[in-house]
Simulated assay, not measured.
Amino acid sequence: MAIVTLTANSCGYLTARRLPEIIQVHSCFSHALNLIDDDGHLFTLLSSEKYQNLPDAVRVTQPENWDWRQQASRGETVRTTAGKLQARHWQVDISAATVWQPRLGGSSVSLNALPDALRHYETLSSQLFLFCLEHQVESDLLWACSPLIPSESKRQLAPAEAMEQLESQVAQLIGFGRGLTPDGDDYLLGYMAALWPWKLNAGLREHQQRLHQAISINLPRTTDISRHYLNRALEGHFSQPVCELLEKLTARTPTADLIAATEHVMQFGASSGVDCLAGILHGLRNINTAH
Results as ranks from 00 to 15, higher is better:
112 N>A: 14
274 V>R: 00
245 L>Q: 03
223 T>P: 06
147 P>H: 08
128 L>G: 03
176 F>K: 07
257 D>Q: 14
126 S>P: 01
155 R>V: 07
246 L>M: 15
19 L>A: 11
75 G>Q: 11
9 N>R: 14
210 R>D: 10
206 E>T: 12
261 A>V: 09
156 Q>R: 08
253 T>C: 15
287 I>F: 04
263 E>A: 11
37 D>N: 15
9 N>H: 15
113 A>S: 13
227 R>C: 01
1 M>H: 13
256 A>S: 13
268 F>W: 08
281 L>T: 02
219 L>G: 00
47 S>D: 15
59 R>A: 13
195 L>G: 01
37 D>H: 11
282 H>M: 08
24 Q>G: 06
284 L>W: 04
78 V>K: 06
231 N>F: 04
118 L>P: 07
159 P>F: 04
231 N>S: 15
87 A>Y: 06
117 A>R: 02
90 W>E: 07
141 L>H: 01
12 G>D: 04
99 V>W: 12
202 A>I: 10
248 K>D: 08
41 H>M: 09
58 V>F: 05
222 T>V: 05
120 H>G: 07
184 G>L: 02
139 S>M: 01
82 A>S: 15
118 L>V: 10
92 V>C: 14
54 L>P: 00
95 S>D: 14
189 L>C: 08
114 L>Q: 08
111 L>K: 05
59 R>H: 11
127 Q>A: 07
233 A>T: 00
95 S>R: 15
26 H>T: 05
50 K>T: 12
216 S>R: 10
47 S>M: 12
20 P>K: 09
286 N>G: 03
30 S>F: 02
92 V>M: 10
169 Q>E: 15
133 L>K: 13
234 L>Y: 07
217 I>K: 14
123 T>Y: 05
290 A>T: 14
182 P>K: 03
84 K>C: 15
80 T>I: 13
240 Q>R: 09
112 N>S: 10
126 S>C: 10
23 I>G: 00
264 H>S: 13
61 T>E: 15
173 L>A: 03
132 C>F: 00
115 P>Q: 08
213 Q>L: 14
66 W>H: 10
288 N>K: 12
227 R>H: 03
13 Y>V: 09
117 A>Q: 04
194 A>F: 05
244 E>H: 10
217 I>G: 06
37 D>P: 05
208 Q>Y: 14
290 A>Q: 13
259 I>G: 01
33 L>Q: 02
97 A>I: 05
210 R>I: 11
282 H>L: 07
186 D>M: 04
259 I>S: 08
237 H>N: 14
223 T>N: 11
261 A>I: 07
151 S>I: 12
158 A>D: 05
178 R>A: 10
15 T>L: 11
58 V>C: 11
116 D>S: 11
183 D>W: 01
58 V>N: 03
119 R>L: 10
211 L>T: 03
1 M>C: 09
94 I>K: 05
21 E>M: 11
145 C>W: 00
239 S>G: 13
190 G>Q: 01
237 H>V: 06
32 A>N: 04
132 C>K: 01
249 L>A: 06
175 G>R: 03
198 W>G: 02
142 L>A: 13
51 Y>V: 04
288 N>M: 08
211 L>G: 02
78 V>I: 15
111 L>S: 09
87 A>V: 09
25 V>Q: 03
